[in-house]
Amino acid sequence: MARALSVSELYAKKRKLLAFEGEWEKHLGQPEPFKTWLIWGDSSNGKTTYVLKLAKYLSQFGKVLYNSMEEGDSESMKKAFKRVGMEDVRRRVMLLDNEPMNELEERLKKKKAPKIVIIDTVQYSEMTFSQYKHLKETLPNVLWIYVSHEDGKLPDGKVAKRIRRDAMIKIRVVGFKAFPTSRYGGTEPYIVWQEGADKYHGSEF
C-alpha cells in the first residue's frame, strides 16, 4: 500500500512540466509530459492542421510519433505536413502509416523510442477502453494524444467519450478554432486558420 502524502509533501514535490511559452502556454498552460490528451472535431474544421501544428511545437520537447491510422501515407497527409512547414523540424516528427496498436506498443517499448505519441483516430484504431488503459499503464512515460471524430459536440463513440473523461487536456476543434479544457491553466482558443475562423465565428474572433 502506497504511503499517503501530507499537504506539505504534496506542495514540495517537484514535477517535470513542458515549458510551453507564448500562445501555446496561453492555450494549454504548462502540462505534465506523461499524461493523456484528447482532440476531437468534425471533418473540414481544421482538426488535422491543428494536430500537426501541435506536433510541430511539441517536437522541441522530444521526438513525436504520429500514427496516421485514417489518412496514412497519403497525398493529403503530405499536403497537410507541408501546410504547417513540418520540414522545419525534419526527423523530430515521424509518420507511421496505419501501424496496428499491438505493433505500436512493441515499438514504444524499445530503447530511445519517442515519448510523444499521436493516435489519429480512436475510431480507426478500433481499440477498446481496456486496451487504452493497458497502454497507459504499460507505457506510463509517454504523452498520449488521441484524435477523435465528433458526434454532436462530443467525441464519437463510447471509447472516445471515456478517454475524454480521463484526459488531462481536452480540445475541441470547430470552425478552425481549438477550444481547450486544460487542467494546467490554459484557457485561450488557438486560431488554426484566421480567415476560416472569421468566416465561421465572425470577424470579432
Results as ranks from 00 to 15, higher is better:
Glu195Gln: 13
Ser68Arg: 03
Lys78Cys: 03
Glu32Gln: 12
Asp198Val: 10
Val64Ser: 03
Glu23Arg: 13
Asn98Ile: 01
Lys109His: 13
Arg183Pro: 01
Met86Ser: 10
Glu106Thr: 07
Ser148Gln: 10
Leu38Gly: 00
Lys26Cys: 08
Lys161Phe: 12
Thr138Gly: 12
Ser203Glu: 14
Lys177Cys: 08
Met69Pro: 06
Tyr132Gly: 02
Glu105Val: 10
Met94Cys: 08
Ile118Gln: 06
Trp193Asp: 11
His134Trp: 15
Lys79Val: 03
Leu95Glu: 05
Gly22Ile: 11
Lys35Pro: 01
Phe205Trp: 13
Trp193Cys: 00
Lys177His: 02
Gly202Thr: 15
Trp40His: 14
Lys56Met: 11
Glu71Asp: 15
Arg164His: 10
Glu126Gly: 05
Ile163His: 07
Asp151Ile: 03
Arg15Val: 15
Ala4Ile: 15
Tyr66Thr: 00
Gly196Pro: 02
Leu143Phe: 10
Gly152Ser: 04
Gln60Lys: 12
Ala2Tyr: 08
Tyr184Asp: 09
Ala160Phe: 05
Asn45Lys: 09
Val84Ala: 04
Met77Ala: 05
Ile145Lys: 00
Leu139Asn: 01
Ile191Tyr: 07
Val159Ser: 00
Ile171Gln: 03
Lys133Ser: 15
Leu139Asp: 08
Leu143Ile: 01
Val64Asp: 04
Thr48Tyr: 00
Ile169Asn: 08
Pro189Lys: 13
Val117Ser: 02
Arg15Phe: 10
Trp37Pro: 01
Lys35Cys: 06
Ala55Lys: 06
Trp144Cys: 07
Leu5Tyr: 11
Tyr200Lys: 05
Pro100Cys: 03
